[in-house]
Design a protein around this nucleic acid. Sequence first.
DNA 1: ATTAGGG
DNA 2: CCCTAAT
Length: 660
Amino acid sequence: METEFGVEGNDERKYEEAGFRKIYSSLSSTKQLTDPVVYKLVRVEGDGRLVPATDDEVMEVKGLLIDEKNKMRIVTDTGQPMGCISNEVSSSGMLLQLESSEGLSQSENTEVDPEKLHARLEYIEEMLQRVKEEERLRLSCGSADYSSAYVIIDSQCSDQHDKLPAIDEKLQCEIPLQETVPSLAPSLIESHLHQSGSIDKCLNSPKKPTEGGALTSTGVATSKPDFSKLKEEICLDNLSIKELHETFKATFGRETTVKDKQWLKRRITMGLTNSCDVSATTFIIKDNKLVKKGKEDCCDNGDGAFANDPPTGATINGSQQEAPITHGGQVEDQVVSDKRSRSVGDNSGSEDHHAEHRAVKRVRKPTKRYIEELSEVESKESSGKSNSKLKCSGLGQMSSKSHIGSVGNISSDGRTVVTRTDSLGGSGIQIPCVSRVRRSRPRKNFMALLEFNPSSMSVTAAQLKKALNAHNILLDNDESEKDRSPPAKFVGVTDKDIQISAIDAVGGHHKVLKLVDSTGASDDNVVTVPTSKGGIRRKHHRAWTLSEVMKLVEGVSRYGAGRWSEIKRLAFASYSYRTSVDLKDKWRNLLKASFSQIPSDKGINCRKNAASVPIPEPILLRVRELAAMQCQVPPSLNSSKGGGSGSSADSVHEKQSGYL
DNA sequence: ATTAGGG
DNA sequence: CCCTAAT
């Protein structure tokens, strides 16, 4: 149906005979299908049966795996249910089967180059990363309905696995998923235009000697979102992987480890242009619009898409050892060389970790909060203990047990969650160091309980535990269990986690990676932090990402300031945190910022930026616009700053588009 | 339940 | 961000 046959009909028949139905091929006709990867989509029924994905499901997932450069195909299984894998599968989901070419085309040849396998592994990881990212992005758009994605890796070459002990390990990584990732409002783009007089250069020289020094020795800029990189014109083409990662973070407020330049560029571009139609081969974003350099024009040609695939990745700077995931099929070797330990799917925090770890042989720098928390712990316990634990759970696990093993846990807001044994009520249970207790709701319940049962601690404790469990915060020693993801068994999952667990499927021939989606907000937990002053204060600051801000702004422009619940529902549907009140507060802040920060623009970005990322001027401008058109302009500084060129145009603009 | 404002 | 008053 949605089949898009075509292109190298080479092994077409073979696949079909094997019971596959090819549904998508993004292969360019020029590429050789020497080492194809086959995807098979399967749904996991509640009883554990695996049934072929429906066409609709296929369609849905199809978009997730458009891989234009690597030679692979996506096919669905036309066949029958594949049998039971587990009766623990409660949630239905998608199965994505990756079949290595070795399995298909070389099934007779048992001798598989270990290197190739390794390469395959790396490749799969990369793909998983991408699936994950796509999943996140998709989630943030609030579209999807299915809550799980499964990836099955057909291990027909299981005999090779001994040679690659890492495989099994890698399949068992948990992936706490993070929410977020909106796209930028097109409306912002316009306002940006007005101001673009002063706008110019590409951001390909993001390294100011001053910044980031503390973080990385490679001179890569800091990992904190740097909106400045998103301002003005962005030449994604010239960026290294690292820089792309930075840009990605700035755009989506989240780290990524996807090493594919093309993918990164496309994704970033999509985010920045709020378009899903980004298939350009050149990625220059100017004024939030995609500018195509040498080629035709921008954004369009949604389908066949990435036929020509100018090696933008070829812009590899020799200086930086960037992830050499290139296209074609020659990549593998390079990838192999990159076999650092790495988890299939951690989330931002550890992704960061990986990125850093990879570029520099250096342990991830603990976040401020982490240090803070650690110190708190230390104050109670012996400091040395804590330290060792940190190291242990942070890295030791990975390196010792296996290539990757469990990456430990990462809180969805990007912080590494180190488990420690704490004397909570003297029970000595293991709790995540940084785990935060669910905020408002449980607290309420908890309080209520305390009120009604002031004396029965057991009850309240149980309730608390229950509440925590409800949010997938394991208080028990399940921590390790969770990590291990015992084979042939699905981990109990809530909709709040994304994880990948390996299980032995039918006849032990399949490894299944489960990619459970997350509503994204597993982090609206809170931690109360004893302030040095004595009081204890809550400590959840969830930094607003650029994307969020832009979404907010766009929401305001669309529904009007004040309709926070509307905006919440419509524009922030996928953000479980960020209440309407939050939106309101943020808007208030934005207003304040937009009307105050103007004059000191140049002087500011020197030092102060280090701590707090400034909001890009275009956004502020837009905010001012909206404020003006909605009569929210603070009386004091009404028309002061506007004197310049942009404002006149703006005012005109705002008057005309005043009502929406 | 949602908003507006102050803290 | 939190809290509260007002609607």
